[in-house]
Amino acid sequence: MSQINSDRYAPFDPAPSLWSYRLLRLMLSPFLRRLIFYGIPVLLLIGVGLLNLTNEQRREQVLTAFNDLKMFVTERPEFMVNLMSLKGASVSVMQDIREVVPIDFPVSRFDLDLDHIRQIILGLGPVKDANVRVRSNGVLQVDVVERAPAFLWRRENGLEVLDETGIYVRTGASRLQHRDLPLIAGEGADSQVAQAQQLFEAAKPLRERLRGLVFIGERRWDVVLDNGQRLMLPEKNPVLALERLIAINQAEDLLERSVKVVDFRLQHRPTLQLRRRAMHEFKQTKLMQLGQIND
């Protein structure tokens, strides 16, 4: 009996042994804890990873797997762009855009550099502004604002259509095609289209007779009317000069007379150049007057 039950009365001592106590304290020291729970596992993981990557074949496999995974995500139908939709462009501009934007549809949305495409489209002459985005159902939407033709510029090698800021839009085939556009000529005229515009505004009373403006010596304008009449405007304040001239014309019908050139380059001393016949008659008249006096 006592043999059997003696265990029940054996004093139970829950005390840890000295060494287990020391081990616990060692494991509780902060440095060792961090080393065992973070340091060694991380080092092991990195070591195994690096060891794996020393093998060329393995490295390739990893790279392929990575690319496959990337493809798997990017090539999903939700991310594919199938066609390009152009809006706001004329047919010829559309053709141009389709030519310069080299995309082989279908293409993943992640492979499209929208900014780059926009820059390319903006590089086209007739395009003033472009907005490129990908619409929800796989459509590359390109909204184009074309430049509005404002001037026809005659150059040595043909006609050019300019917009209101003087930027090249396209080449004009002939004057007849662009009857509605005012004509300018002369080197450097495209840099002064704003002034040209003002001059055209001021020259409205002469609209029927106006043929165009010529930029002379890259500094001043000549207004060319039909019958070969020419109004030479000064460098400074050409609009004011033109308005003065028109006022004179309205008062005295100056341009209806046989005047070839009205020279307004010096504002305080306008000069007239008469046509040859008129000059001759003027001379005769003067002579007659002189002869009468002489007689």
């Binding site: 829950p14 005390a15 840890p16 000295l18 106590y21 616990l24 304290r25 509780l28």
Partner: peptide, 10 residues
């Protein structure tokens, strides 16, 4: 006994 208490507390 003291070690028991200290160990469990730690």
């Amino acid at each position: 006994a003291i070690r028991t208490a200290l160990q469990s507390a730690q």
